[in-house]
Computed example of a mutant assay.
Amino acid sequence: MRKDEKTRQHIIIKSAELFNQKGYAGSSIQDIIEATGLTKGGIYRRFSNKDEIAVEAFEYAGQVLMGQVSAAINNAESVIDKIMGVCNVHIDPVNNPPIIGGCPLLNTAVECDDNFPMLRDKALAAYEEMLSLIKDILNNGISVGEIRPDTDIDSLSSFIVSSLEGSVMASRLSRDSKHVRFVMQQLRLLLNTYIIN
């Protein structure tokens, strides 16, 4: 990797952490300068504006998160273990989030609105990717005879992702990761009702 590419990647990584902690609107170019240790010119030689940095930083954060999720799935065998593995990536969002500042999908989804449609579209695509991942796990479970074939995959997938993201939000807000553990406990019980014995 060339020096210029390394510097660009450094800006993306540090900005991803910054935006994930302070939010896009709450972070200024000066904050990015301080986080990266670069000059204003060093930033603007590589990015045209803060919006461009935000989009690439969100994409980077999503790749890091999905890398952790993929590893968790690959290390599990049953449908329930795979879904619990996805949840386990967020097991301690207060003290050990998957990315500094918490879940980038949750943080960006809460913050983005019609004022930054490109970032909203990226957050929506990330949400749909997570939803699709859970659907694939469940559909595979049906294919191999582990999950009941009459399972409403769309509804169950939405419930799983929404419950997980909600528990991450509740844990971050209350500064107590018990909410993720509670959701995992209840999801395991729910998923057991769909298992073919």
Rank of each mutant, 00 (worst) to 15 (best):
G67A: 06
G67Y: 00
Q68E: 10
Q68R: 13
N74L: 02
N74Q: 03
A76K: 11
V79N: 14
V79Y: 09
M84S: 03
V86W: 08
V86N: 07
V89C: 02
I91E: 06
D92I: 07
P97L: 04
P97V: 03
P98C: 15
I100W: 04
I100G: 02
N107D: 11
V110T: 11
N115C: 15
N115P: 09
N115Y: 07
M118W: 08
L119H: 02
L119P: 14
R120I: 09
R120T: 15
R120K: 12
D121Y: 06
A123T: 03
A123L: 06
L124N: 07
A125H: 06
A126I: 14
Y127D: 14
Y127S: 12
E128F: 00
E128H: 03
E129S: 03
E129A: 01
L131R: 11
L133M: 15
I134T: 01
I134N: 00
I134M: 06
I137D: 06
L138W: 01
N139L: 14
N140L: 13
V144D: 11
G145M: 08
P149D: 15
S155M: 15
L156Y: 03
S157D: 03
S158K: 02
L164D: 09
E165L: 12
V168A: 04
S171T: 12
S171A: 09
R172A: 13
L173D: 11
S174Y: 08
R175K: 15
D176V: 06
D176K: 00
H179K: 11
V180R: 01
R181L: 12
F182V: 14
R188H: 05
L189A: 07
L189Y: 12
Y194D: 14
I195Y: 06
